[in-house]
Measured scan of single mutants.
Amino acid sequence: KAKLLVLLYAFVATDADTICIGYHANNSTDTVDTILEKNVAVTHSVNLLEDSHNGKLCKLKGIAPLQLGKCNITGWLLGNPECDSLLPARSWSYIVETPNSENGACYPGDLIDYEELREQLSSVSSLERFEIFPKESSWPNHTFNGVTVSCSHRGKSSFYRNLLWLTKKGDSYPKLTNSYVNNKGKEVLVLWGVHHPSSSDEQQSLYSNGNAYVSVASSNYNRRFTPEIAARPKVRDQHGRMNYYWTLLEPGDTIIFEATGNLIAPWYAFALSRGFESGIITSNASMHECNTKCQTPQGAINSNLPFQNIHPVTIGECPKYVRSTKLRMVTGLRNIPSIQYRGLFGAIAGFIEGGWTGMIDGWYGYHHQNEQGSGYAADQKSTQNAINGITNKVNSVIEKMNTQFTAVGKEFNNLEKRMENLNKKVDDGFLDIWTYNAELLVLLENERTLDFHDLNVKNLYEKVKSQLKNNAKEIGNGCFEFYHKCDNECMESVRNGTYDYPKYSEESKLNR
């Protein structure tokens, strides 16, 4: 008799109507990190870190770059004969040098303040090359056809396309004075040089004057150069050297050249137009028929994500570079809930034993079982409120962090190594801060989002509990077992918050 009662009780308990509160689960393989956990499985997430590029040089917003090819900045601007293909260059979106560009200054020497000139050019998007001192009329008392084997072109001695090597005419090199007034309405880049012979005999042979000088002056520039005559090792078949100089001439300003020898005179100059998204990159990537809004030396990035880990040097509207390998923000729920887990921000989770793959029309909802059958029903209101809140948060985070910009490298010469090392340390410090901030932001927001979901499920549970009161009992896994019969209409009233407690209280009292 006792065995019969136990079996009867078990049958009745199993047959009781139930309603459970749960949440969506799926077959997603997404994982995120939080402050407290690593690799948390979630139903949905968004990636904030771009880690792919196309490996190509592309047009930037429809404008092609200027590819210097086998030449570098120095060779292009001075007019190395091997860089003749660059003479027609007028406009570009950015400038590309190759790491091993070999054609710079063909006659050995240095372009002074080269690093600063590169910085200036990094904001130039177009130029006009014009004859600042016409070759045939500007130097009537001097020979202007100086050439050298060091600047050979097609097997013949030649010289820079933008400079003139002035030497004596006959047996004399009379003092020369020439000036140019900038009437271009924009900055003009003027380049010139000073020749330093290897011996007094060479000085006399070329310029006749043993104590020659070169003077260059404008409103913002004033220097006097004296040739340094000295024996030097042979470089590119030359014992002599040429140093090259430049200045930016403001609109309306005048530049005056005065010399008694050794002047490498300007022939062509450049009127410059600035462009905020221009820059110089060093890259071996090849040019393709493609378009982008962000270019790196590795390749083009076409992404609206706020961060990238491809390269710190970028041109155009680019994500911020960070050292992170993963920045994924959760938008959905835990896919593998932890039992009795309390989140960092106070939300209680884990009283549900598992997510439901059968509930596909919402994030949170119900599963019921009664004599009429069983089924899932999503709670659309709480789901939609959660979707709206999380979507707004993700968009806000992306908008705040998605300050796209150009980031170019800084140039230092060989004598500025300590400054370069200090600059690298400062840049590394800023990069570490950006990386830390980005990672911390994602970790915190992921923790908040998961706790937010847990709290929403808990609130749904409490909503049902407050309606049923003692007409049902909690069975410990997020479910309630009714003390009365609850048909589909009754189940719907529980879900929509209109459950009639008094209607079922007498039946429940008897069954309790």
Rank of each mutant, 00 (worst) to 15 (best):
K1H: 07
A2Q: 10
K3C: 14
L5R: 00
L8A: 01
A13P: 09
T14V: 14
T14G: 02
T18H: 10
I21S: 05
G22P: 12
G22C: 07
A25T: 07
N27T: 05
N27F: 05
S28C: 12
T29K: 07
T31G: 10
I35S: 06
I35T: 14
I35Y: 12
I35C: 12
N39V: 08
N39Q: 08
V46L: 13
L48D: 04
L49P: 08
E50K: 03
D51H: 12
H53P: 12
N54H: 04
G55W: 04
K56W: 12
L60Y: 13
L60H: 01
K61P: 00
G62E: 08
L66D: 04
Q67A: 10
G69N: 11
G69H: 14
K70F: 00
C71I: 08
I73N: 01
I73K: 00
I73G: 02
W76L: 07
L78G: 01
N80I: 08
P81H: 15
E82F: 09
C83H: 01
D84C: 08
S85P: 09
A89W: 05
R90M: 10
S93A: 12
V96C: 08
T98W: 01
S101W: 07
E102N: 14
N103Q: 13
G104W: 11
C106N: 02
I112A: 15
D113I: 00
D113S: 14
Y114D: 03
Y114R: 05
L117I: 14
L117H: 02
E119C: 06
S122P: 01
S122E: 13
S123R: 13
S126I: 04
S126P: 00
E128N: 11
K135T: 13
K135A: 12
E136S: 13
S138D: 02
S138A: 15
H142V: 10
H142K: 01
T143G: 15
F144H: 08
G146S: 09
T148A: 00
V149L: 12
S150G: 07
C151E: 03
R154P: 00
K156A: 11
K156E: 15
S157R: 07
R161M: 03
L164I: 10
T167W: 04
N178D: 06
N178I: 09
G185H: 09
W192A: 01
V194Q: 01
H196S: 12
H196M: 13
D201W: 01
D201M: 08
Q204D: 15
L206R: 00
Y207F: 06
Y207H: 12
N211Y: 03
S218T: 10
N220C: 07
F225W: 12
E228P: 03
E228N: 06
E228I: 05
A230E: 00
V235H: 07
D237C: 01
D237F: 07
D237Q: 09
H239W: 00
Y244L: 04
L248Y: 00
L249G: 00
E250A: 14
D253W: 02
F257I: 15
A259S: 15
I264L: 15
A265Y: 05
W267Y: 11
A271H: 05
I280N: 04
